[in-house]
Design a protein around this nucleic acid. Structure first.
Lengths: 204, 204, 204, 204
DNA sequence: TATGAATGAGCTTTCATTCAT
DNA sequence: AATGAATGAAAGCTCATTCAT
């Protein structure tokens, strides 16, 4: 079989799956360290210690498929991480707090993955990957809509606020670039306070 | 003239200045439409109707100088626009409101320029252009610090909140990509309300 | 294989080694015939009958690596040739004679290689390749110092005389350019006589 | 008049002659410092402080004419210098000594000019400028032939020895590159001794 | 005499991808 | 499953030279 693309993961051999994982990991790290625009097959192969770029072409039908796999890998990781956290949420405010602080904590412990994901989303051109980032925005917006329905939150444009919150947490990797010692938990708490005050129903 | 870089604008001929402006304009539009990574001399020359890419090399010492000139052009435009607006500000809250709504209005009327600027800042690699975006962040933070000093604003990490506000207004071009008919003024007003509630001193 | 540079010859495949040799040979001949300054990938590819210059880039990391490989090829050839000859030398005078006549004979039978080597050394800028030409000078100087120590040679500045002898034998390729039918052996004998008389200890 | 080429010097205006001289001087210095291969109109214009390379094209029909003018400038200078010296020579041996030491002294005081001349002769490809260097070789050979006719010198191939002597003195600029503090006069004296011993009629 | 403007050709290098085992 | 080899296209940049005042 010449091309693996399109196969379910179970249809791949053990070594093939391992190779793909190795390449994806290297891709994520190269994107995080060198930037999306400087990421090429040659650089990935060199980073991963592959003898030829041919090995990448063999396991991934095209560059865009490799990039997509790298993005998916990060999305899967963060989804698993957040899913466990979100279970503890009851009201909208606490769910929002969990989401913000959880994302910040994940960023603190997975800097490269987060940076790579953002590079990919931005690098392919603004808005070219709606299927990847829209769900994330949708998640926050869902919490906001829930809070408005329950009366916890005031009346506001849920899309605008959701976008703002999403961009706020996504800004953390950028800050870490220039301030590597930044306290991510404190950053998350500041955001929680800021948006709790900004979204809660005003007191009479 | 071999190298135009470093010369005051008055030291360039009329036609030379016009050509540079033409090329810079084309560059901004190509970046906005095709994305930073897809911007090449060939694409710019084709877009501007130039006979060859050599004409670009003639007027700009290097590609990075051209990109820098394009970014500077946008920064100058927005600076002029905002400088006039900011004169009306007296207290910190109103200055913050003017800043947010002004930036949103500018984005509404200069979509390509804003998108191009963001593409450049992000495309050159995160954090590689601190001299370009830091001043903007600094501007917002300055307002916040002023408001805290005057007692208008509550106690918060000015850096975190400034970054959040800056990223919020910079998110508008991204939204316009998927929602071209978005009401930018309304978007600005939502942000003003969100951050006024989030930053004001709590009532006793 | 992405980069061949730095690998031992045995680490390369048979066809890869053959291609490299073919390209190196073509490079030497192009340099010899067209001159260092007129040597480009395009000219080499055309001369070697390659489909594109890309093939050169594939086998050599950069142009300078290709040039270095070409120079090394000649140096290796002449070293092997001279090493066998020098074994016959006992006293300094005979070693000097062997060196001069050997170099001249090598030049006679390897005109292109010698010319290419000189073009490379000179073309890269005077004195930029001390590691390549200094050893040759050092070799001659070594013989001279030995002769002075043994009393065969008179007292002179070994560096000056060594440089002169080296430049004398290196001048042969230049002469062959304008006088292709020049008798190299006779040229060598003339030099031997000239420098024997110039260096021997004066008779009482 | 569009082109100055082919005009006698008297047919050029004062300012035109001055400009040509300025450009030629800059060319010589650029060649000496950057090397023949790195010498371009752009570099010369930058070095001379010219606003455009167009000024060079205006005063010189082509690059080769400019290079030729630079070479001629050096040749004229050295010719004037040597002509005065050679008047003191009576016998062939003293003329040879004067020639060698004179050339070495000239090199010591005109390093850039000598290096530029050699770069030009070598840079255009071996043997491509016979009209420029052959006369110099001829000069030495003339002295040698005279010495053989008068019985001062032994029987040898005048062409070979002349070439060797010429290359010996031309090697000085190369040595100065790696040994800037070299004693040129001492170098010249060593050469004189070496070649006097090598060329004189053997004592019975 | 001088200049700005423009140009086509050339350069090396990097790109993702395909061919053929 | 893996690999070496090869490839056309495109990139940014520099070259000497010409056009038109």
């Amino acid at each position: 079989m010449l091309v693996n693309e399109g196969l379910a993961d179970g249809a791949r051999s053990v070594t093939g799956t391992a190779r793909r994982a190795q390449i994806v990991t290297a891709t994520i790290e190269v994107i995080a360290e060198a930037g999306y625009g400087q990421t090429s097959f040659a650089r990935i192969a060199e980073y991963a210690g592959l003898s030829s770029t041919r090995l990448i072409s063999y396991h991934f039908k095209s560059k865009s498929e490799l990039i997509a796999a790298a993005a998916q890998e990060v999305v899967d990781t963060i989804s698993t991480f957040m899913a466990a956290r979100m279970e503890g949420g009851t009201d909208a405010a606490s769910m929002l707090r969990i989401y913000i602080e959880g994302t910040c904590e994940f960023t603190a412990t997975h800097r490269q993955q987060m940076k790579a994901l953002i590079e990919i989303v931005l690098g392919d051109g603004i808005g070219d990957l709606p299927d990847t980032d829209q769900p994330a925005i949708g998640h926050v917006e869902q919490i906001l809509l829930m809070g408005q329905a329950s009366g916890e939150f005031r009346d506001f444009d849920s899309r605008v606020v959701a976008t703002t919150i999403q961009r706020a947490v996504e800004g953390l990797p950028f800050l870490l670039e220039s301030q590597p010692d930044l306290d991510c938990a404190a950053y998350g708490r500041e955001l929680v306070t800021l948006f709790e005050l900004g979204t809660r129903r005003s007191l009479p």
